[in-house]
Computed example of a mutant assay.
Amino acid sequence: MTNTAKQLKQDYGDDPIAVRETGKYVDEYIGGFVEKWDELIDWDQRAQSEGRFFIDLLKERGAKKVLDVATGTGFHSVRLLNEGFEVISADGTPAMLSQAFRNARANGHVMRTVQADWRWLNRDVHGKYDAVICLGNSFTHLFSERDRRKALAEFYAALRHDGILILDQRNYDIMLDSGSKPRHTYYYCGENVQAEPEHVDEGLARFVYRFPDGSSYNLNMFPLRRNYLVNLMREVGFQTVTTYGDFKETYQQDEPDFFVHVAEKRYPNEEEPS
Rank of each mutant, 00 (worst) to 15 (best):
D68R: 05
Q115N: 05
G92F: 03
Y251D: 01
T71H: 01
Y187D: 03
W120Q: 14
E270V: 01
G237R: 05
T250Q: 11
Q239G: 00
R20I: 05
F259M: 11
A116H: 05
D257H: 11
V208G: 08
P94D: 07
L80D: 01
G72D: 04
K65M: 04
D162G: 09
K59Y: 02
Y209P: 00
D173N: 09
T240I: 07
D162H: 14
G179C: 11
R149K: 15
G127N: 07
D91S: 04
R225F: 06
G51M: 03
A70S: 14
S274Y: 11
P197C: 08
A205N: 10
R148D: 10
G31M: 13
D11A: 10
R170H: 06
D213E: 12
P273C: 01
K64H: 14
M111G: 01
H199K: 04
N220D: 09
Y186N: 14
R146E: 14
A116N: 03
E196K: 14
A63Q: 07
G163Q: 10
V262K: 07
D162A: 14
R210Y: 08
G108C: 04
Y186R: 08
L135P: 03
C134N: 14
L8I: 13
T243A: 08
D213H: 11
R52G: 00
H199S: 06
H184L: 13
R61S: 12
I55T: 07
P268T: 06
P16V: 04
D91T: 00
G127V: 12
P223R: 10
G84T: 02
I17A: 08
L81E: 02
A104E: 01
G84S: 08
L40T: 08
E264W: 05
I174V: 15
